[in-house]
Design a protein around this nucleic acid. Structure first.
Lengths: 199, 199
DNA sequence: TCTATCTTGGACTGGTCGTTCCAAGATAGA
DNA sequence: TCTATCTTGGAACGACCAGTCCAAGATAGA
């Protein structure tokens, strides 16, 4: 009986993700979103609710579409340390050059803002961190199985350290940090985890 | 002949720093600043210029008053690795508990926002990074002199890695990360830099 | 005390914010 | 084709934004 939506919510959400990602959620107005997506305020509010909920929805979409695939690939990569190194090399490249250069990471960017927003947003930040940490942990376990890690390394702590490095890469790259420095920092951490023979 | 200011700009700037630090510069309005500092819009604009310049001034003040003393103490500490460990322990404590708990770091927070603002702001971010990096480097050199570092460690890369860890601690703590996890991550990095005997 | 000069309070501006609302349009089952 | 129901466009809302302006107040040298 009723009418149906004249647009695909996921397509709209992808455009919102790009806006929030590049220009920041706080500094992006509803007017910007209306102009970019082409749909009206009515449709926007009827579909996503108020701006905080839209922000949460965009964050969730970013996590599933942008972050999760990369995390899953890392977790499934059985090479060990080379897989981690490759992850960071691609990360730094994506953050410093190409289409999304100097955009940072939407989830990382959100850490510094949106403090008093929905608990839903905080939850997504936590889910992102858990997923990143778990992927690092899985890759480290593969590295240990391959005998690439020095004896006595705490995998849980090492995974956390690598996750933190990734956040910092995201953060500093947005402010214009050079790729070489970021990669050198990451490599120093990885070298510290490596057996002397492999190093 | 003329009248003089009825307030101390530095005292006002300190209050602005607190506002921007806790609530974010973008989400703090001029009205908030007027109410908190007690002075009028006229005095505010006559003294600091527009909001972007006020933001830059507050950032500079934060760097000199909050960051620089800690960096200088680290650079002057001759203990080596224990000095770096102490730096991070105090950092995590300050970020997760006490008066400024979950405020993060004003400079770190600014990375994720204020992309299109003054080049002056970008400069302060760079100055902050250089100062942090240099302090880490100095502490690492003391550690090497004390024979605490494993052979072949690239001090420049190691200093960058530690600086990045500090940014990530600032970032994740603002989103509610637990102190224990942050400290574990930092310790994993430091352990990787240590000689097997010292470890 | 007088006066030139700066500071201050606060009203005011034009613009933008997020959000609401409703009439008109589209849809699909009856 | 008719109709109930949802969607859509776009006008309108009050609140707030950063920033301006000027008359009144304060100051300190002459």
């Amino acid at each position: 009986m009723p009418d149906v939506k004249h647009f695909d919510p996921d397509v709209v959400l992808d455009r919102v993700v790009r806006l929030f990602w590049q220009r920041g959620a706080d500094t992006t107005g509803i007017t910007d979103i209306v102009e970019t997506t082409g749909l009206s305020r009515s449709s926007l509010y009827a579909t996503f609710g108020d701006k905080a909920r839209l922000h949460a929805a965009a964050l969730g979409r970013y996590l599933e579409q942008q972050s999760r695939p990369v995390f899953d690939a890392l977790a499934a990569d059985t090479r060990g340390l080379p897989a981690i190194a490759a992850f960071f090399e691609r990360l730094v490249t994506a953050r410093c050059s190409g289409e999304h250069a100097r955009w940072g990471c939407l989830v990382t960017n959100t850490h510094a803002t949106a403090g008093g927003d929905l608990p839903e947003i905080r939850d997504i930040l936590d889910r992102h961190h858990d997923a990143l940490h778990a992927a690092m942990r899985a890759a480290l376990e593969a590295a240990r199985a391959a005998g690439q890690l020095r004896a006595g390394l705490d995998l849980e702590a090492a995974a956390e350290a690598l996750a933190l490095q990734a956040y910092a890469v995201n953060l500093r790259s947005r402010a214009g940090a050079e790729a070489a420095g970021l990669l050198a920092g990451v490599r120093a951490v990885l070298d510290g985890f490596t057996t002397t023979e492999e190093r």
